[in-house]
Design a protein around this nucleic acid. Structure first.
Lengths: 344, 344
DNA sequence: AACGTGGCGTGAAACGATTCGCGTTATGTA
DNA sequence: TACATAACGCGAATCGTTTCACGCCACGTT
């Protein structure tokens, strides 16, 4: 049914090799260019990706494995990644593993069987075992957002400097005089949560201050979790003077808890978020936040992978790109009661 | 490098045809089953999808084109669709066209070139031209959430009865005595927005009531849009006694506007939402809403497509599945001041 | 005892591109 | 004019499955 290169050869009178060469960007006489172009249009020809793949062993398809498609940050990354790859002719197979390690492993296998040229992964499993099938088959891998130490040297990665981001955010609060700072974190054991926690402590340490341990709340990066966590902070005997929420879903939940309790920001409480999506702008115009460069993360990851695919024979150079964040000033943070707590 | 069926044939001493048959679920002597299984394991063999595709012209890959990956409803559908399809061995290429008709068309072409076996589409373009390349090549199509009349008979579809849903929701308010009802709609011209608008009018008409025209606000289905729209309703000279928000993003935005203005639900205002995600439960435990069966929508769409793929030679029977919604009772709606407005 | 039947197995011909190693032609130089 | 060189074109093999058309064998039936 569909037209093949043989049909084009027949119509144009050219050889297969010539047509193939032209279709792949090679040099051909102008007359033949035109001939082929016409024939392609007339027959509505497109290259058969199966046949091409069979010869070249390349699918021009990339697999993306993420923990949850419902999380704004992940979705955003997927969008940028997909855009960048599609512009280079790559399609993207998206796999949401529901934060399930078993499912994640299954999906990597699935993608490998589908013969993807590379894999992008925001890992759920902390140890990286799930990627073994891909490594075994030499499928290039780029991790995003979360590192896996045991895999260093075998994969590339793109992360933001989470500890630094958290340090900067905390510093803003501490230097504003806050001492009783609440922090709502992601799940214990998740790379980003640990890093952000570390930065929080470091900022205190650098200033010779102790951390207000009661203010530390581990949650789950969901809107609901943020809501519950904020409620918990607000119902404790001692209230924080500032709260740092470490992702955008939780920020949404937390802010709903705030307005429920009629707590004014920043009059009653200073409020700082991690990663404020664009659509927060109208809602929380004053919100101070740490911004992750979503676009850059996605593009960098895609480009890193594309480079690995280019480097045909030379041994691949794995690298980890660390992107920096910036604090986006708002008015949701104001000076706190500096004197309230003692320095060490 | 990778093992092929030839290797298996060599090791087991069997013919290619036998191995192929077994691998595709055919009957083979138990002894040979074991032989093949062992060899497969030993060689770490997996079928080469390129070669298979070349012979069968099937990629076992489905393309999904949606307007925005950042919208909870769409993402949710993608998740269910992907799950259902993966269980049947199909991979999913996800394309977010950013509500851009030109991009949407481009993506359909891209998917067709990638030789997807079928396309699932929540259409952005209202006329369906963008699907022509797929139709020309006989790629089965299932539309989701939004119908395209000119394509009737050429594609299948899965929608919910939006008019009915909206009618039921509106009826709840009207029968509760509300007359000045605000409704926050999606963009004019978008299928679901029009349908929900129609249902809103019908509910009034059925009761011989006139619509409070000032309460109709077209927005854009975003959180930000819902926020702005609600603010607009609240700043008009005459306030609504109830507001119906027609998607979940806008509900979130609208409810933030409400708490900003310290408007209590349902004391000051009755509030009804369309499609409340699970994670709203903790935040708005009392919210009354119209529920769309996300899971069923995704599964039905996937299954409809799978059926079309099965029906190998017989002419495909196109059908449109219309799923129903249900009103999930909460306490965010309470009787309104029945007498305030006159019947016709 | 002859014969039909059904279950399994096999060889070889596709599917439609890419690519290697050569041939042919045009161009520039001595 | 002859010849080196570059530019371009061509034929044929090849990638790894699927599938068609048979062949073989063991049964059970009459």
């Amino acid at each position: 049914m569909a037209a093949t290169m043989n049909d084009i050869a027949r119509i144009t009178g050219l050889g297969l090799a010539t047509i193939s060469k032209y279709l792949n960007g090679g040099n051909v006489l102008p007359r033949n260019k035109a001939l082929i172009d016409d024939a392609v249009k007339e027959l509505n020809f497109t290259v058969n990706t199966f046949a091409r793949g069979l010869k070249t062993s390349r699918s021009h398809t990339i697999g993306v494995v993420i923990p949850e498609l419902n999380f704004a940050f992940f979705t955003s990354i997927v969008t940028y990644v997909t855009d960048t790859l599609r512009k280079r002719g790559y399609a993207v197979l998206v796999c949401d593993c529901r934060t399930d390690e078993k499912l994640e492993k299954e999906m990597v296998g699935f993608l490998v069987d589908k013969r993807v040229d590379g894999i992008l992964n925001i890992p759920t499993s902390p140890n990286g075992e799930h990627l073994q099938p891909a490594l075994d088959r030499g499928v290039p891998i780029v991790l995003i957002d979360r590192m896996i130490q045991p895999l260093a040297g075998q994969v590339s990665g793109v992360i933001v400097d989470n500890a630094d981001a958290s340090r900067k955010a905390t510093a803003l609060l501490l230097d504003g005089g806050h001492r009783d700072i609440g922090i709502i974190l992601g799940p214990k054991g998740v790379y980003t949560a640990e890093q952000r926690y570390a930065g929080f402590r470091e900022a205190h340490g650098q200033r010779g201050l102790t951390v207000w341990e009661e203010g530390i709340v581990y949650s789950d990066y969901t809107m609901e979790g943020g809501y519950v966590a904020m409620k918990k902070l607000l119902s404790a005997p001692q209230l924080p003077t500032a709260v740092f929420v470490t992702n955008s879903e939780m920020t949404l939940g937390a802010s709903i808890a705030l307005s429920e309790k009629q707590i004014r920001v920043p009059e009653d409480l200073s409020f700082l978020s991690f990663d404020k999506p664009d659509l927060f702008n109208a809602l929380f115009p004053t919100l101070t936040s740490v911004q992750q460069p979503h676009n850059a993360i996605g593009e960098t990851a895609a480009n890193l992978l594309l480079n690995m695919l280019q480097a045909d024979k030379e041994p691949i150079q794995h690298q980890v790109a660390m992107l920096s964040t910036q604090v986006l000033p708002g008015t949701s943070v104001r000076p706190g009661p500096r004197s309230k707590r003692m320095t060490i």
